[in-house]
Design a protein around this nucleic acid. Structure first.
Lengths: 107, 107
DNA sequence: CGTTTGGTTAACCACTTACTTAACTATTGT
DNA sequence: ACAATAGTTAAGTAAGTGGTTAACCAAACG
């Protein structure tokens, strides 16, 4: 899933879908690459669960899947906040204890 | 940066760093791969800005850079929430208008 | 009917990625 | 001084990624 977000073209597609559903050719338009390439990117996005699509007639319409995005977000938040809390505790500790400086074996 | 998060081994390293700073060999221990491989992953993590490290004597100590994580998180949140708002508005609209069903040219 | 139009599949290619081993450097413990 | 430790560099490789073109299929249009 992070792999899906790792490619610039795919992020452009995601940003496009942020503004509402889009067909495959609409996703392709701003992308300076052939249609098959876009379809491959779309496969990656779908495999990651970030995007879903339904085909009606001959046009496939794609839309974002917010749940998946929320999952990625959650993972990041957890790591970030738990580390920030550690930093805070360290800050408090250093504010109280002014550097004991342990001796070195051979300078 | 999403590319840095896209690899499982690198995510393990990040999770390890969540629990506080670590040396290169500490990061390597749970990883079933050679040291050079770990160093390469570390390079990627540093290039992405997610991790920083200082070498004192012969041991390099690595720690998380929360700012970078916050950036990724922000990107995701923006996309997710703006799409969720769209969904909400669509929900309201559909609740008021009970499906007009436009005619098809030839069924 | 035949022809666009929108999308899909397949086969291929250049480049990158994620490893490996081997050789090396610099610090630290005895 | 010597050996062990911690990490680094270099070079090679197998597999994966991102793109191409060409051929193809089915729905919509005239």
């Amino acid at each position: 899933m992070f792999h899906a977000l790792a490619d610039p073209s795919r992020r452009v597609m995601i940003e496009r879908l942020t503004g509402g559903p889009a067909t495959v050719s609409e996703l392709a338009r701003p992308l300076a690459m052939s249609m098959p390439a876009v379809v491959q990117h779309l496969h990656v996005l779908q495999a990651s669960g970030l995007v879903r699509s339904e085909k009606v007639g001959r046009v496939r319409t794609c839309h974002l899947e917010t749940k998946a995005l929320a999952t990625a977000e959650k993972w990041i938040t957890q790591r970030r906040t738990s580390w920030e809390q550690r930093l805070d505790r360290l800050g408090e500790y250093l504010a109280e204890n002014p550097e004991p400086k342990p001796p070195r074996s051979r300078p």
